[in-house]
Design a protein around this nucleic acid. Sequence first.
DNA 1: GCGACAG
DNA 2: ATCTTGTCGC
Length: 265
Amino acid sequence: MSPPRPDLAPDADLSREEMESLQREIAAAAVFEDDFEFDPATLGDPLASASSPEDPPVVAGIDQSFLSDADGDQDRALSAVVAMRGGEVIERVHAIRPLEIPYIPGLLSFREGRPILAALEDLSVEPDLLLFDGSGRIHFRQAGIATHIGVVRDVPSIGIAKSLLCGDPCEDTANLPTGTRVAVESNSRVDAPDGTLIGYAVQTRQYDSPDRSINPLYVSPGHRVGPETAADVALALASSYKLPEPVRLADSYADEAKREIGDAP
DNA sequence: GCGACAG
DNA sequence: ATCTTGTCGC
């Protein structure tokens, strides 16, 4: 049993070195193996949830959009959370917070973490699993945004990235068939022994004809979820689109809320 | 110095 | 991430 760690929350006022040091603490507190109560088999399938005695687990997708000031410069981040249960949306919340630092590869959670934590606090349901757009363990210090927020809240989490931050796919990932995965291992750029399994390239959708092809998603453990389960979940929740439904809906909701509020303060 | 680099 | 119409294909 691991407690929530609000003391490890992302702080944009830290120096770059302090941020990296905090990330090593996050990685040390993270659990990169299955450690949850719910049955992953009842995640998104409406049929499985109907035959289950318990309520299906609540899965929350999280994504951000950005608002600009009068000069056209991005000055605020809008974090959107879409909670689903048994394939149905049960709640949507969003929060807006000022952007304190620019985007720096490897330090994403310090830029987007505050608005995400604020939005999660507005959520009335207790999520059993968090799905982030970004990396988890596939990170230089094994502490991507999914890992950071997962550890701070002590909620099982998974990172779903559209491109690879670091690490090496074991095999060629071009033109993978739907439903397949290729292991991603750590290399010299990752703070882990070379060859450590840190995630999977997962092909949730693929064209039939060899004309064009869809790139895989890079799925990695955030907290309390192992690499195999993380890949299983991504595949189970991606019904008819490349992105798992909770993340896809959070993505569109982030844009929707942004337009409704309008830009410029 | 060079290369790599989630959103 | 964001700026953005049409367009190719199933």
